[in-house]
Design a binder for these strands. Structure first.
Lengths: 255, 255
DNA sequence: GAACATCGTTCTACAATAGAGAACAATAGC
DNA sequence: GCTATTGTTCTCTATTGTAGAACGATGTTC
């Protein structure tokens, strides 16, 4: 049938592919919909979904549709605790936010994506920008402040695999041309920080820097983000300084 | 062998049980350790773990041991977005924290557990209490402020199933006697808020209230927590007032 | 340094079981 | 009331997951 990869436990692989069908855009799915998405048999999907439901990983709504279960949240806690970053970086992130009065993000590299972990909202901005929990959100590296900062810090031979092949223009300002991205990364590398000019969210500018651990390994990135008006050339340099100082302080506490 | 339950896809059920072996206390496990925990065959475990690794749900460390993969975090984001609570409650939680200067928690009921979702740290307390990301953390209902507040709000016939059968004394102050718990819940119910007196963490007091949605259904709980010294009888009443006011404001925005 | 124990990994043959398809009941749309 | 979906159930067979032993690598002990 379909290209069954060389996986030991195939039914398990199918089950995980079913779980991956659920997304922010489609958090609720029916059996038939899943079967059609993966080109699987209805009863096959039903068996797997039933089992996943009995285990608590999927829940069924009154409408008959299914969605991911709350049990999933337990894993994020385990993974996050195991990473051990909050204790090391959170007060530094808080400090950045106080000093610049803008939103601060912290994320780590995951293949060609930025995997966001933490966000700090400044007190004043709360009314303008709705709060969002971002633990687990992902975005392509090539068009985000943190992403470009981390990309620039990676060895150049990793760039091709870290730059998403199919680049969507999230906004009119998104740079999708491979050559342009490379040029920008060269600049970022030399300058020591990255700038995103509304490439992900319209009207939002972002300054990002890479974060290393005490062994000198690149492990994360952090950024300041806010409305374009607040990001003058002078402010950007000030923010970059704050971020680099913060990254330096984190470095000593990360292993 | 072991009591194989009536599950359709047994290999999948085994796989999920393997995932459940990983915990905050044991985030890294070897094949043999898992096999021994679940009384399964080594090669059986190995096949499943290999598949889970190929799918990205498990990662192998240099030591040879395995741990949960970063991919897990993506699910917490989907689940959390689907819940849709952050937008509805976060600024209210922030407001509570400003008004009382203590740590504020927000959690939802999950069987006999409190499933914590969000935490707000007051600016002043950051140096004392290390920041923790709590999304996905769980604690028994019977010994936490939020838990007891929610328990008291549940119909009394649900109490038996919501009160953990095997009650551990987390601290010397933990109330584990079923009769005492019931008595306390009756008091909470009448009073409208719950008090935890170091029953989970020594030296920490906690005031909790239930949170309803606009249809009048109990869906969550929120609490203020801090050092005992800050929780005088007078302060507790003040905090309870703040929380009840906040719960009322959330109610209008929750569906 | 050698013997030992334990680790993760590989292999194969057998039997359990996952899965395709048709038929089911239940619901929503027209 | 009819139609077109939906989620669910059933059965039989070939697929596929699994037990057990043996592998080499690692690290521990005396």
């Amino acid at each position: 049938m379909d290209i069954q990869e060389d996986l030991k436990v195939k039914s398990l692989a199918k089950a995980m592919r079913i779980l991956e069908c659920f997304s922010v855009d489609e958090p609720e799915l029916g059996i038939s919909r899943i079967a059609e998405m993966l080109e699987l048999n209805k009863s096959n999907v039903h068996n797997i979904v039933t089992t996943l439901m009995q285990m608590g990983y999927i829940e069924q709504k009154e409408s008959g549709k299914y969605c991911l279960g709350l049990k999933m949240l337990q894993y994020s806690f385990i993974v996050n605790e195991h990473l051990g970053y909050p204790r090391a970086v959170y007060d530094v992130l808080q400090d950045i936010s106080w000093r610049c009065g803008e939103i601060v993000y912290f994320g780590i590299p995951y293949r060609d994506q930025v995997l966001y972990l933490y966000v700090i909202h400044p007190r004043a901005r709360l009314t303008v920008m709705p709060y969002r929990e971002i633990l687990g959100e992902t975005a392509p590296m090539y068009c985000t402040g943190i992403g470009k900062a981390m990309l620039a810090a990676f060895p150049e031979d990793e760039w091709p695999e870290r730059i998403t092949k199919e680049r969507k223009p999230f906004t009119p300002q998104t740079v999708t041309d491979y050559g342009e991205i490379i040029t920008d990364l060269q600049v970022c590398k030399e300058r020591g920080y990255a700038i995103d000019d509304g490439g992900r969210e319209p009207g939002l500018r972002c300054v990002g820097v890479p974060v290393y651990n005490s062994h000198g390994k690149l492990i994360a990135g952090t950024s300041i983000s806010g409305p374009m008006a607040n990001f003058t050339e002078k402010k950007i340099q000030e923010f970059a300084g704050i971020l680099q100082d913060a990254a330096f302080r984190m470095r000593e506490r990360l292993y």
